[in-house]
Design a protein around this nucleic acid. Structure first.
Lengths: 367, 367
DNA sequence: AGCGTTGAGTGGACCGTTCCAAAGCGGCCG
DNA sequence: CGGCCGCTTTGGAACGGTCCACTCAACGCT
C-alpha cells in the first residue's frame, strides 16, 4: 500500500511535467529552432512517435491512411532521421570505415569502386580516412573509428602500424584489401596474386624473345612476391643467367635511378633488353631514364609495368602492364567483410585474385 | 479518482522492473558482454558517472585521487566513449563532411592536406565521400551527411548537383573549395585565381617570343575563367590575331583530339607555336598528339599546362605548368568553414588564392 | 555561534531514436 | 452476448553520454 502510493506520486508528477513541456512548450517556441524530430512529425501527423518510427522502417502493420499522413508530415517538415540517435539504440551505424594508406597514389580508386558497390547493396556506407593525414597529425585512426562505432573496417593497402590494426581487429570486423601484409588472426585478406602477375609479365617478355630481363624491385611483401614471380618464371625457362635485379622504391624517382644504374653502367652486350618494373610509376621512371640514355622504347628496350593505373593508359606513355583486377579485389573484400560481420569469430580467410596482362605499346621483340 | 488509480498502477510495475534491471541485472550478468560504458567505469572506480564525465572532459574540479581512480578504471576496461551518444546530446559531431568530386582525378590531394591540417588543429575530423561513387549508386550524398549530422561540409571541386548543395547549405555550414562554381547565398568559396593563372601562363609564352598561341579550353566556370585570362593576356600584348581556341574536356583524350585538330589540319604557316592547355591532363594529351604528328616539344611546340599535378612532375613529361597553391586553398577553406560555423548567417565570402608559374621543360623560345 | 562561500561530488532530466509490452478496437464465433 | 482473436496504435524504457541543479563538508568571517 505504502509502496504503491509512493511510486504513484513520483512517476505521475514527472510524466506530467515532461508531458507539458513536450506538448505545449518545445515545438511552438522551440529554443533556437532545432531540426524536426520524430516527435514533431508525429505531432503534425496526429499520431504517436511510435507510429512514425514504424512508417520510417516501412512496417506492413500500418494502415494506408496513417502512413500517408506521416509521409506528408515528413515531407512538409523536411525531416531527416538522426543517425546518432538511431545508432545509439541499434548499436549499429551501418557505416564501415575505410582506411586508405595514402591518397597520393591513386591505384586504389578502382578497388574503392568495387568495395562501394557491394557495400551499398547491403545498405552500408563508407567513411574514408587517409592514413597519411592521420599519421601527420599524430592522430590515431583506430580511435576515431572506434569512437564512431563503425560496423567494420577495411584497410586498403599496406599500413605501417600493424599493432594498431591488430588492436582494432579485436573490437570490430576487419578486412585488409590490396596487400598480403599483416597476417593477423581474425583479419581476412583479399589481394592480387602478385606472384602470378609478375610471372605473366615476365613470361610475356620471354615469349617475345627476350633473354636478359631486368627487374626493378619494390619494397614490402608485395615487392617480395613480385620478385619471386619474376625469378620463378626466369628459372622455369632456363634463364637464370639473365636475372638482373635492382632495388628501388615505388616512385618515379626510384625507378629512374634504378634504370640508370641498370642500363647506363655496363657495356652494350651486358645490357638487359627488357625491364619488368615493380609498378607503373617506377616504369615511368624507367621510361625517363631510357629517353635520357638515348634508348628508344620499345625498339631498344621493352618495358612492362604493373597495376594498370591510369598512368599506363596515357597515350604518351602507353605502358604494357599487369592489370590486377582491383575492382574485383574491392568486391571480394566487401563480401569478406559482410561475412565477418555475420560471423565475427570465424577463422581468417585469404583470397587471391587472378591478374591479367594488359598489352600496350612498351614491349616488343628485341631487334 | 479513477484516473489516479489507473496511472498509479501502470507506472509502478514498469518503474520497478526498470529499476531492478538497472541496479542489479545489467552490469553484473551483462547480456552479450557489451563494450564498457561510462557507467561501468564509474562502478569500477567507485564514483558516479557524472564524475567520470568530468574526468573525460578534464575538468579542474576533480580531486587528484578520484581522477587517478577513474583513469585507472578507464585503462583497465579499455573504455572508449561512444561518439553517437555524445553527439546526440551535444548536437555536435566534431566531424566535417568532405565531398570529393571524383577521386580519380588526384588534383585535390594537396588541398585535402591543407584542409586537414587546419581542421585538426581545431579538433575536427574529416569524413570523406566520393561524389562519383554516390552518384553511381544513386545515393544522395546530402542525405548521408545530413543524417550523420556533420558539423559542416566542404565540397571539393565542381559538383554536378547544385540543387542538393543549396539545400544542404540551408542546414549546415558549407564551403566550396577549388572551384568558383555555385555562387550560393550562404556558401563561402575559396578557389584559385584561375584567370590570373591563365594570364601567367600566356604571358610566359609571350615573353618567350611566341605570337600564335593556342588555348585548349575546359568546361565549367573554371574553363571560362582560364580562357578569359588567356584572351586578356593576348589582347593586352596586341596579339588578338594570334588567338586560337579549341573546345575540349579535361581528359587526356580530349586534349589529344583538340591538339590534333589544332596542329594537324592547317598549313605550317598557320600552325600555333605554343599551346596553353586547360589542365595538366589535357596537356599530356597535347604531348601525345605532338609526338604522333612528329613535332618535338619544346623545339617545335611549346606547351604549358595547369594545376601542377604530379603528372607534371614526372620526368618523362616535365610539364611547365601553373601551380595553383592547392595546399593554401585547403587551409583557407578550413578557416572559412570555422568562421561560418561560428557565424552561420554571415554573408558569403569569396577568396582567391594567387597562382604561380612552375617552369619545367615544355616551353622555350620558338626557333 | 551562526552565516555565507566555495569546491568536490551526485542525481536525474534530456538528446532522438527503437522496440517491447500492452491497449484499443472491431469482428467472429460459440 | 461475452469472450477471444487479430490488427493497428500507443506509452514508456532503454541506448550512453552531457550538463544543470543540488547536496554536503569544510572553511572563513563577523
Amino acid at each position: 500500500m505504502e509502496r504503491s502510493k509512493k511510486s504513484a506520486e513520483k512517476p505521475v508528477g514527472r510524466a506530467r511535467q515532461a508531458g507539458q513541456e513536450r506538448e505545449a512548450g518545445r515545438p511552438a517556441d522551440g529554443a533556437a529552432n532545432r531540426p524536426p524530430t520524430i516527435r514533431s512529425v508525429a505531432e503534425r501527423a496526429g499520431v504517436s512517435k511510435s507510429l512514425v518510427s514504424l512508417v520510417l522502417r516501412d512496417s506492413p502493420q500500418v494502415s494506408d491512411a496513417k502512413r500517408a499522413a506521416v509521409l506528408d508530415a515528413i515531407r512538409e517538415l523536411d525531416y531527416r532521421p538522426n543517425a546518432a540517435a538511431r545508432s545509439l539504440v541499434a548499436r549499429r551505424t551501418h557505416t564501415v570505415g575505410v582506411l586508405l594508406n595514402d591518397m597520393r597514389n591513386p591505384w586504389f580508386v578502382d578497388l574503392l569502386d568495387g568495395l562501394n558497390s557491394v557495400l551499398h547493396e547491403h545498405g552500408l556506407r563508407m567513411l574514408m580516412a587517409d592514413g597519411r593525414l592521420s599519421r601527420r597529425t599524430g592522430e590515431d585512426f583506430t580511435r576515431a573509428f572506434a569512437e564512431l562505432r563503425v560496423d567494420g573496417l577495411v584497410a586498403v593497402g599496406t599500413l605501417p602500424d600493424t599493432g594498431a590494426l591488430e588492436e582494432v581487429a579485436g573490437r570490430l570486423p576487419t578486412v585488409v584489401a590490396g596487400t598480403h601484409d599483416p597476417k593477423l588472426p581474425r583479419v581476412d585478406t583479399v589481394a592480387n596474386d602478385d606472384e602470378q602477375g609478375a610471372r605473366l609479365a615476365t613470361e610475356h617478355l620471354i615469349s617475345l624473345g627476350h633473354r636478359r630481363i631486368a627487374h626493378i624491385m619494390g619494397q614490402g611483401s608485395v615487392g617480395v612476391l613480385r620478385r619471386r614471380g619474376y625469378e620463378a618464371a626466369m628459372r622455369e625457362h632456363g634463364l637464370e643467367g639473365g636475372i638482373v635485379m635492382a632495388p628501388s622504391d615505388a616512385t618515379e624517382e626510384g625507378g629512374y635511378r634504378a634504370a640508370v644504374r641498370l642500363l647506363g653502367g655496363t657495356g652494350s652486350g651486358e645490357r638487359p633488353t627488357a625491364v619488368f618494373a615493380y609498378n607503373d610509376i617506377a616504369a615511368v621512371g624507367v621510361l625517363s631514364a631510357a629517353q635520357e640514355l638515348g634508348l628508344d622504347v620499345p625498339r631498344d628496350l621493352s618495358l612492362v609495368g604493373c597495376d594498370n593505373t591510369y598512368l599506363a593508359r596515357i597515350r604518351h606513355l602507353w605502358l604494357t602492364t599487369v592489370d590486377n583486377a582491383s575492382h574485383e579485389v574491392g568486391r571480394r573484400a566487401a563480401r569478406c567483410l559482410l561475412e565477418r560481420m555475420a560471423h565475427p569469430s570465424r577463422p581468417a580467410e585469404r583470397q587471391l585474385v587472378e591478374p591479367a596482362l594488359e598489352i600496350r605499346g612498351t614491349a616488343t621483340s628485341p631487334h
